[in-house]
């Protein structure tokens, strides 16, 4: 048996709908109601007067990235590239560098995020094993005049930095004993 399609019944127009004008007047009635309600009391209007008034975001809002530092002020990022690998927009570019000690060993020489390409999915934050990158600034990326200015380097990403004492490497003794 042939597959049956879905039967959609056509809307039957009533006489007043067919005449069109009554419907137009009804529509105009709605327009006029809103017009007068809004012009005197802003009854339906919900617009916020940005930037004077701002909506506060939820805590989980994913804003501009920032890089975190350790207690001693050094960058927490160990250039593991987990964020760069997880990033679906491929907008993180990292170059690693040997620190030269045997405790941290590796850090990011370059850490660059192209905020124009970023889709603010937050996967980088989830991927980071060291709590080095966060998106909790609660801020949008500011408008800039050139494309290059949206390429945030370490310096820009550190502007909003904070100390994170999250345990690195999973072992609570690991960082403190050394």
């Amino acid at each position: 048996m042939a597959k049956k399609g879905i039967v959609v019944s056509k809307h039957k127009y009533t006489l007043s709908e067919k005449l069109y004008y009554p419907e137009i007047f009804k529509g105009m009635g709605v327009s006029i109601r809103h017009f007068f309600a809004n012009i005197f009391k802003k009854k339906y209007t919900v617009t916020l007067q940005y930037p004077e008034q701002k909506e506060s975001y939820t805590e989980r809002f994913r804003g501009k990235h920032r890089l975190m530092t350790r207690e001693d002020g050094s960058l927490r990022c160990v250039a593991c590239m987990m964020c760069a690998t997880a990033c679906p927009a491929e907008c993180i570019y990292i170059e690693a560098e040997d620190v030269g000690d045997s405790l941290v060993e590796k850090r990011a020489k370059l850490f660059v995020i192209d905020e124009l390409r970023c889709i603010f999915c937050g996967l980088c934050v989830e991927a980071c094993p060291t709590d080095a990158i966060r998106m909790d600034t609660g801020e949008h990326v500011e408008p800039e005049y050139t494309r290059e200015a949206f390429i945030y380097d370490k310096k820009k990403l550190l502007q909003k930095t904070g100390r994170s004492v999250a345990i690195q490497g999973g072992d609570s003794d690991y960082i403190h004993k050394n």
């Binding site: 809103h34 017009f35 012009i39 919900v46 617009t47 004077e52």
Partner: peptide, 24 residues
């Protein structure tokens, strides 16, 4: 302005003569 009232918006209201006054 009328369209914005009808559509529950506020409409253009930014042009002003008082310069940089923060209080709307």
């Amino acid at each position: 302005r009328e369209s914005s009232m009808i559509q529950d918006r506020i409409g253009p209201n930014r042009a002003n003569l008082s310069g940089d006054v923060w209080d709307l």
